[in-house]
């Protein structure tokens, strides 16, 4: 691992990229690097996520946003650097554009399965409660395969509620959603933050999502071009 990174000998990380060290850190990534084969996709990226705050990860296509998120969520290994999650695996939730649903299981059965994977056994009332929170209480026993994209993603969101996460990984969850569902999503992200969760949020909709984030990580050419408070981010030369 180390040998690979050394052989490429990356330039020193920009000094202004580290935020102040605070006590309520949920996740701390230090100088993370990643190669796919011989292709460098991440170089010396460092960032922190704090409790009750959202870190917006932005950048052009292929800038390594999703890779960084996958590395943080433990879905693939970094080639170099460290990931320090200060929460238990049971308290992490991942919400991507994939809906993580089994089409032939009902909404309730899907939620029950995922809750069991997190070591929980939810009661029927609890399922009804989270489903009504996303407006799906009527279809609790319908197979998830009959749902529209918006409904499926709401069900996916209900799965995240059930986990009651302290750290949430979002990979462009709003893709393909109608404006009402997107609004619901942003509102619920605020609610997760109020409940104390740290949020890592890969986003394509900078203007719409920036007001909901406390800090921004801007990836460019596989490296971190900006990491700091959201208020200080000028949008980079991001065009998408």
């Amino acid at each position: 691992m180390g040998a690979r990174a050394d052989s490429q000998n990356p330039p020193p990380v920009r000094a202004d990229l580290r935020a102040d060290i605070r006590a309520d850190i949920r996740a701390d990534i230090r100088r993370v690097g990643k190669f796919f084969g011989s292709r460098l996709v991440l170089r010396e990226v460092s960032a922190q996520v704090h409790a009750g705050e959202a870190l917006l990860v932005v950048g052009g296509n292929g800038a390594g946003k999703t890779t960084l998120l996958k590395i943080m969520a433990g879905l693939c290994r970094p080639t170099a650097g460290e990931i320090d999650l200060r929460v238990a695996p049971e308290d992490c939730a991942y919400l991507g554009h994939a809906t993580f649903l089994y089409p032939r299981l009902s909404a309730a059965a899907n939620l029950t399965f995922w809750a069991r994977m997190y070591g929980q056994t939810p009661a029927r009332e609890e399922l009804e409660a989270v489903l009504s929170r996303v407006g799906l209480a009527r279809v609790i026993d319908e197979p998830a395969g009959t749902f529209s994209r918006g409904m499926a993603q709401r069900l996916n969101l209900a799965r995240v509620f059930l986990i009651k996460p302290q750290l949430v990984f979002l990979d462009e969850p709003g893709t393909g959603l109608d404006p009402a569902s997107q609004e619901l999503l942003r509102r619920e992200i605020e609610n997760l933050k109020k409940a104390g969760a740290g949020v890592v949020w890969v986003s394509h909709h900078l203007t719409a999502d920036l007001p909901h984030a406390e800090s921004v990580l801007f990836l460019k050419d596989a490296g971190a071009a900006y990491f700091g408070p959201a208020s200080g981010f000028d949008g980079g030369d991001l065009t998408c």
Binding site: P89, E90, C92, Y94, F100, M117
Partner: peptide, 17 residues
Amino acid sequence: SLEEGQGCRLGLLSSPV
């Protein structure tokens, strides 16, 4: 293939299982 359709593999891997 049950896990492949809607990305459930990532769901399993990102869970504590």
